[in-house]
Lab assay of single mutants.
Amino acid sequence: EFTQISGYVNAFGSQRGSVLTVKVENDEGWTLVEEDFDRADYGSDPEFVAEVSSYLKRNGGIKDLTKVL
């Protein structure tokens, strides 16, 4: 089950073990991109978060400006 990723309007994530599946949706709710990120592939949590965040930004993730990150 996908849940909204904090700080984004149209990005959602689903966690299974160490694998986080993220997706970005358009205004109609269609999935634009979907990608798996395995936490085990990264040396640290900040590196993992930075990679996921960068992916979302590159692929149309819209920041939720009503929330302070």
Rank of each mutant, 00 (worst) to 15 (best):
Y42H: 02
G43P: 09
R58C: 11
E35C: 15
I62K: 09
T3S: 10
V68I: 11
W30R: 13
N26E: 02
L32K: 05
P46A: 15
E51C: 13
G13P: 00
G17C: 07
V33R: 07
S44Y: 02
A40Y: 07
D45G: 07
E34A: 10
I62S: 04
R58Q: 08
Q15C: 15
R16N: 08
V33Q: 06
K67V: 13
E28H: 10
V33P: 02
S18L: 06
E28Y: 12
E51R: 10
V49Y: 15
E47R: 03
L65G: 10
E47K: 03
Y8F: 10
D41Q: 09
E35L: 08
D64E: 10
A11Q: 01
W30M: 14
L20F: 10
T66K: 10
F48V: 01
K63F: 14
K63R: 12
E25W: 10
G61R: 03
L20H: 02
K57T: 12
S53I: 14
G13R: 07
I62H: 05
S18T: 12
G43A: 13
E34N: 05
A40P: 00
D27R: 10
D27I: 11
A50T: 07
R58W: 06
R16L: 06
V49F: 15
S14C: 15
T3Q: 09
N26L: 08
V22A: 01
S54Q: 11
V24N: 01
V19Q: 03
S14Y: 13
E51G: 07
G60R: 02
D38G: 02
E1C: 15
D38M: 02
W30L: 13
F2R: 07
L69G: 13
K67M: 13
L32H: 06
G13C: 15
D27E: 13
E35G: 08
K57E: 15
S53P: 00
S6L: 11
E28G: 08
L65K: 10
L56V: 07
L56R: 01
D41I: 07
G60Y: 07
D27N: 11
G7M: 06
T66D: 13
K63G: 07
F12Q: 03
E1H: 12
I62Q: 07
F48K: 01
T31F: 06
V19E: 00
D38L: 02
F48M: 05
E28A: 10
E1K: 13
V22S: 00
V33Y: 12
N10R: 08
G43N: 12
V19A: 01
K23M: 06
A40E: 09
T21N: 02
V9A: 07
L20S: 00
Y55M: 06
L32N: 04
F37M: 01
